[in-house]
C-alpha cells in the first residue's frame, strides 16, 4: 500500500492528566487526577490515514488536542519534522499551526454566523499571509468544488446549510491552507448515514489527490475501518492494540478489540462477545491492565502488572500478557 514509511509525526509516551474539579474533591481538599491519556506512542507515516477508535471517554479528543498543543501534555513528546512540538514557544508553534489542521464533529459552532462562506474560507489564507484577494478567492472556489459545493454557495451564510454541507465547509476551511496533516475528530458522527457516506467519499478522494496525512478519530468502527490504512484502539487513555486495517479486522488479538468489534451492529448477523460491567472511571483507573475489570480472560497477573504494548506480528502491536 504505502511505499515510504517515513513518519511525518511521531508521538512518544504522551500523557495528559487533568485535575478533577468536582465539589467532592474540593471539599476533601485532596486533588484528584483524571488520567485522560496515558503513555501513548504511535506514528503517522506520510500520506497515510491513521484511525483512532475508542469508546466515549477513552481519550481520543484529548489525544488530538494534546498533539496539536491546544492543551499542554503532562509528559511525552510530539515530533514533527524533527521538532518536538511540546518544547516550542507559542510563536514558534503558531507558525506551524497551518501545517496541522483540526476538523471537528460540529463545525457549526466554529463557523462565524455573520460571515459568508467565502469570507470564512478565505480567512485562514489571510492570516497566513496570502495578500492578493483574487488568489484567495480562486483558492476558495476551487475547494468549494472539491468538497462538492457550488460556486453560488460562496455568498451564502452558514445557517443556510444542512449539517452535511456545513461539514463540507469545515473540511474546506481546514484544507485551504494546504496542511501537511489533518486531524479529524468525529467528522461524520453527527450525520445521517446517507450524508455520512457522501462526506467519507469526499474525504477519501481529497486524501488521495492531495496525498494528505490524516489522523481520523471516531467511535464508529465501520467508519474508521473504511477510511483508515492503520488503526489504533484506545481504552481508558491507553493504546490496547495497533495494526494495519486489514490485519486488525482479519484477526483482532486483544480481548478488548475482539469484544469491541463483535458489538458493532452493521446489519450482519454474528456472535457477540458480551462485555460485563461499565467502563471504569478515569479518576480511578484499574491497576495493572486497565481492561482487566471487564476482560473475560483476566488473571491475577493482569490485576498486578500492566502489559507492555509489544509487536506480536509484523506491524501489529498488542498490550496483553496472553497474546502469543
Amino acid at each position: 500500500m504505502k511505499e515510504d514509511h517515513q513518519p511525518i509525526l511521531e508521538i512518544r509516551n504522551l500523557s495528559k492528566s487533568f485535575t478533577a474539579s468536582g465539589t467532592l474533591e474540593k471539599l476533601s481538599g485532596k486533588t484528584k487526577y483524571v488520567r485522560a491519556v496515558n503513555n501513548v506512542s504511535f506514528q503517522l507515516n506520510k500520506g497515510e490515514v491513521y484511525g483512532l477508535v475508542g469508546e466515549s471517554g477513552s481519550g481520543k479528543s484529548t489525544l488530538a488536542r494534546t498533539i496539536l498543543q491546544l492543551t499542554k501534555p503532562s509528559s511525552g513528546e510530539v515530533l514533527y519534522k524533527n521538532q518536538d512540538l511540546t518544547a516550542l514557544k507559542i510563536n514558534e508553534m503558531r507558525k506551524l499551526r497551518k501545517d496541522l489542521q483540526l476538523i471537528f464533529q460540529d463545525p457549526f459552532s466554529s463557523l462565524n454566523p455573520r460571515k459568508t462562506v467565502g469570507q470564512i474560507l478565505e480567512e485562514p489564507l489571510r492570516i497566513h499571509g496570502v495578500k492578493k484577494a483574487a488568489i484567495r478567492q480562486e483558492k476558495a472556489l476551487a475547494l468549494l468544488e472539491q468538497v462538492g459545493l457550488q460556486t453560488e454557495h460562496y455568498f451564502r451564510y452558514p445557517h443556510e446549510f444542512s449539517g452535511g454541507q456545513r461539514q463540507r465547509i469545515g473540511i474546506a476551511r481546514a484544507l485551504i491552507v494546504d496542511p501537511e496533516i489533518a486531524i479529524l475528530d468525529e467528522p461524520v458522527s453527527a450525520l445521517d448515514v446517507s450524508i455520512q457516506s457522501q462526506i467519507l467519499n469526499i474525504l477519501k478522494a481529497l486524501q488521495k489527490n492531495l496525498n494528505l496525512t490524516m489522523l481520523f478519530i471516531a467511535h464508529d468502527i465501520s467508519v474508521v475501518r473504511y477510511i483508515s490504512d492503520r488503526i489504533g484502539v484506545l481504552y481508558l487513555g491507553e493504546m490496547m492494540e495497533e495494526a494495519d486495517t486489514d490485519s486488525l479486522f482479519a484477526e483482532p488479538l486483544h480481548p478488548y478489540t475482539q469484544a469491541l468489534f463483535s458489538s458493532v451492529l452493521d446489519g450482519s448477523k454474528k456472535e457477540r462477545i458480551p462485555l460485563k460491567g461499565e467502563i471504569p472511571s478515569p479518576l480511578a483507573p484499574p491497576s495493572g491492565c486497565v481492561f482487566h475489570t471487564r476482560c473475560p480472560f483476566a488473571t491475577e497477573l493482569c490485576k498486578e502488572q500492566k502489559p507492555k504494548l509489544r509487536e506480536v506480528r509484523a506491524g501489529q502491536r498488542v498490550a496483553c500478557h496472553f497474546v502469543k
Binding site: 450524508i195 457516506s197 457522501q198 477519501k204 465501520s222 475501518r225 473504511y226 452493521d266 450482519s268
Partner: peptide, 24 residues
C-alpha cells in the same frame, strides 16, 4: 440506498460508498 450506504465490517474498502445524493 440506506442499506447500501451503511459501511460494513466486511465491505470492500477500495470502492466508494454508495451515497444518496442531496439532502432531505
Amino acid at each position: 440506498l440506506l442499506l447500501a450506504s451503511m459501511p460494513k465490517l466486511n465491505s470492500d474498502r477500495t470502492e466508494p460508498l454508495p451515497a444518496i445524493t442531496g439532502t432531505v
